[in-house]
């Protein structure tokens, strides 16, 4: 049996350009006018939590740019995912996308992210933080910034009490981790057609053949891209309507906006395409200067890719559960509803 849960304190030493508490976002909040928010790269955030035996939706730390470091007096089980970065424990390089055992009196540094925008740092256990509408995700506009600053103490409730491999100090976990590639300088993003695709004559060909570059005006509300656009003809005024994450809007100016998880929920701009759900995690890693091309896929192909992405997460989750169960590490098991079990 894992040890009883205890509360330990982590001291944040460096806080990157921006570090926040983060999770997968709010559920059911958009009916009340609050965007779901949550980790821009949902895949990396989910994997980080799975790798430490947490539920996917547990609170982690989202790190953007610069250096993030913290110290702990007690042992910790952590995982770092997202853009390729340098992760060290007491000065020794450790792997991303793997469970990492941090010894007591440990110092962890996450730095030099490249190829992407965000890192996710998950801890075995529960990070103590406030919630808004059931989620730790920031909602800065409404006064819930969730920012983590240097000098701040983070509280963690954990049952992890240290683990040492009998022969290797740092155990080797061989897990089937779906690690996205950040090596390509030109990304290919899958898209499906939108309500105004046909009205914007030529946009189909442009999106399929030309390169678009993320500009510095991009943020968590949306990615703004430089590249050729055409404005739809003869639509008149579009009545303001709900817009999903991943919508490709062409506003009045000559730019393309791909809406993010903190979008304004309604808009009246023409929508010429939608990023597929399976392509959203990569878009959540796009930095200014990132070049991308687009590939039209059918709804069926889009759903197939999402199925595959979820299947890989499920496989990883069950492997972590059996491994952690075998070596007595704390882990979350997908709850079986009492009625179903009875």
């Amino acid at each position: 049996m894992p040890a009883a849960e205890r509360t330990i304190t982590l001291k944040v030493r460096e806080s990157a350009w921006l570090a926040t508490f983060q999770d997968l976002g709010r559920e059911g909040s958009e009916a009340l006018g609050v965007p779901c928010g949550g980790a821009a790269d949902q895949h990396s955030a989910a994997v980080a939590n799975i790798l430490v035996g947490n539920p996917r939706s547990a609170t982690s730390v989202e790190i953007m740019g610069g250096r993030f470091s913290f110290t702990t007096s007690k042992p910790l089980l952590i995982a770092v995912t997202g853009a390729p970065a340098d992760v060290t424990v007491n000065g020794s390089k450790v792997s991303m996308w793997e469970p990492v055992c941090v010894p007591a009196k440990g110092r962890v540094v996450v730095a030099n992210a490249r190829g992407g925008m965000r890192n996710y740092l998950a801890f075995s256990g529960t990070l103590v933080t406030e919630q808004f509408m059931g989620s730790a995700a920031p909602e800065a506009r409404m006064g819930f910034p969730q920012q983590i600053t240097a000098g701040q103490h983070l509280e963690l409730r954990t049952s992890y009490a240290g683990f040492e491999h009998p022969y290797l100090t740092q155990p080797l976990f061989r897990l089937p981790v779906p690690i996205p590639s950040f090596e390509q300088s030109l990304w290919s993003i899958d898209i499906v057609e939108g309500p105004e695709t046909d009205a914007a004559v030529g946009i189909r060909e442009l999106l399929a053949s030309r390169e678009y570059t993320v500009t510095a005006k991009s943020n968590h509300v949306g990615l703004r891209l430089d590249g050729p656009v055409v404005h739809p003809d003869g639509l008149g005024e579009i009545v303001s309507h709900g817009v999903p994450i991943g919508a490709f809007e062409i506003p009045h100016g000559d730019e393309l906006i791909i809406l993010g998880r903190y979008r304004t929920l309604t808009a009246g701009y023409p929508i010429v395409a939608f990023a597929t759900k399976a392509s959203l995690p990569l878009l959540g890693q796009a930095r200014p200067g990132q070049r991308m091309t687009f590939r039209w896929v059918t709804q069926e192909q889009a759903v197939d890719r999402q199925h595959e992405a979820q299947r890989l997460l499920n496989v990883l989750e069950s492997r972590v559960q059996s491994l952690f169960g075998a070596i007595d590490l704390p882990h979350y098991s997908r709850a079986v509803p009492a009625r179903a079990a009875a």
Binding site: G28, H241, Q299, Q306
Partner: peptide, 21 residues
Amino acid sequence: LDVVAGVDSVLVEFDNLAVSH
């Protein structure tokens, strides 16, 4: 999963692994 009300429409967001359009 969620709904977003527009002026004269409703955006219905759903889990595409649970149900189709």
